[in-house]
Design a binder for these strands. Structure first.
Lengths: 214, 214, 214, 214
DNA sequence: CATGAATGAGCATTCATTCAT
DNA sequence: TATGAATGAATGCTCATTCAT
């Protein structure tokens, strides 16, 4: 009896999280429109009606999923850049390598793809992700680049564009794996790409002490 | 008079194209599942039933749209690289600049996004795009890089990854505009990005003339 | 030119009959509701729109088909009984044998079945068939039976019911072949049934001259 | 109160039967193609969507109706003959009389007619009815006739055809009432037909006591 | 007159949402 | 509070009918 009671109250606490997790899997797999709440309920191990106790509509459930995905990844994102304060030649390899690590273990790429997919139907989604993820990430990276330019570590150039030059290939590679799978002969190895791209970029932007100039 | 007389026979020729165009707009805007054939018909200026004269099901209409988008862009893609035969230092700026040009005028970015969105529900779609677009594009670029490496124009490194280093930022920028719009302070100017990224990459990969030459 | 002209006007004359024939095949095969006018047109070798030059609606086409089937078979039916004027012991075998003959060559069983099928949706159909076919057939047969009873050829009994006793098995057998096909081990051989049933019935109804009575 | 409380759980048990009953009425009245599920739902007192909770498609609902009709009538049919073990002179009047009884109270004739109507569109339907109803009925009757022939109760002749001679008029009469209604002056009275036809048949097939016996 | 492209009312089916239990 | 049976608006698709050619 006590057992059961505990089990119930325990589950009650966890229900929303379980539902969100199940819903995320479904939304990510099928997209918003093609996801059936019956399937979400089945996957979450609850009755369909139960979903509506916690989320008023399908759309609100979707928003909850997105919000959850956001906050779950946000700390990691912040951390990646905020903490750091060294030279770009140290930051960039670390940043790209960390991004590469995201691929295998987390649902980040799938969520990225979902955001790309659904942002047209849910403009809010695009705005939130822009403000919370993109702006922070690019903003921080851009600031670090500006600082590096100020101390003449790197050559001049638009820092925002430079940030895209740095991150773009990783994003493209992530999407490649998401969309085309890892079996393609062109599927990039993320760690190697991170290393090689960091190398190229650093060579491409670092100010060389030209011997004869001195 | 002539106008009216020819209305039917002329339209019969154009109908499929008109419908595909309208359908592309709807699919791109709403996604496959959320697109209503009523809206497609309305946009195409025909009755609902007329759609089914030309395309048996919603899915076949979708495939026709994808195929059309593919062939419409394919020639341009082939051209971009195939014709070329000079050094990478000429090719890369041209290639990126041309990609930048695609943004404003064509529906390419929207289609790219649609492919990202729907490839999970339509695995065929992913396979076709992989084989027809990605493989060709990356394959050709990779070949050119190998040739440049052979004649020691550029340093060693995995050519496939290098191709991603070159194209990734443009892809990311395209998606940025598609998803977040061009109003964002972080929205990259495509032409400038193309120029700046080409510069960086070339500096990053070109084999330097040995110092004693100076 | 003349050739063509002739061909056309010749066809024009035949068109309604060709359409009715094609329509009968389709209606008989699929039933009224499941028959598509496109298929009728195709089978008749004309365009869909042409059907509507000759028959205002699908329903009117159906009525034309029924009417045609009726008149085509009516003369034969009339003939079978009207002409005859002999004893029942001659009539019944002949009648049943003739009915058996109908099975193989004509579309009569299929039409019978169609009438059974569609009479609920088209009460007119039932009424017409009742008045034109059933009443005439049963009426005539009943009259002949009454005459035979009057001259004490056959025993007393309700002549209408007797008519059904005579015809029923043939009707059932016709429908058996129509519905279950001729492969069933129970599928009756129509000629044999006609002969055997005639025999039984005649034995069953003929007034025997009991030897001792004389 | 109890009424209301149990409404759902009780109805859940009854719903399929209620729906099948309503659907049978509609199918029998209009035929498969012309039956609208809206009307079935209305007649069953449920919403359209509810139908699909219990039957996946219109066709499956139709099959359920047929199956129900089959099993509902099958036991009665089996019983009629299986149990019996007496002489044909007792069996035949009883059998025909029982068949006559079916007319007024059950939906058997309507179902018979539906099977005739829809068997072309649903060949399965014909096969099932052939195997489950016709074969059993005719088979059993045929067996009893063979036994009677063996003990010289009745004269020789094909037992299958004899079975049709026995049943045919009842089938025809059933269909007459179904199709043309009971108002026709030719509409047979089923009980009288059963009695009279039994009489005739028995006289027609019974082996007569040889004259010298008198 | 013949054609067949175009139409749109009509129907089967789906699924988010409600609510009696 | 949890359940899942019931609901009905919404949507893909069909096909008889129309009408410009």
């Amino acid at each position: 009896m006590t057992e059961i009671k505990l089990k119930w109250s325990r589950r009650k606490q966890e229900r929303p999280a379980e539902i969100i997790s199940a819903a995320m899997d479904e939304f990510v797999e099928k997209g918003f429109a093609a996801t059936k709440l019956t399937d979400v309920a089945k996957r979450a191990g609850v009755a369909k009606g139960t979903l509506f106790r916690y989320f008023e509509t399908k759309e609100q459930l979707f928003h909850a999923v997105v919000k959850h995905a956001l906050t779950a990844n946000l700390s990691a994102i912040e951390q990646a850049a905020v903490v750091f304060d060294g030279s770009l030649s140290e930051l960039i390899p670390m940043l790209l390598n960390r991004a590469a690590g995201r691929m295998g273990d987390s649902r980040f790429p799938a969520i990225l793809r979902m955001v790309l997919s659904e942002s047209r139907a849910f403009p809010n989604l695009a705005r939130i992700w822009h403000d919370e993820v993109i702006a922070r990430m690019l903003g921080k990276l851009s600031d670090l680049i500006k600082a590096a330019q100020a101390r003449e570590e790197v050559s001049v150039g638009d820092p925002n564009l430079l940030a895209i030059s740095i991150m773009g290939p990783m994003i493209m590679a992530l999407l490649f794996h998401e969309v085309f799978g890892s079996q393609s002969p062109y599927a990039p190895n993320l760690e190697k790409l991170a290393a090689q791209h960091a190398d190229i970029i650093l060579k491409g932007i670092t100010v060389k002490e030209s011997p004869q100039e001195v």
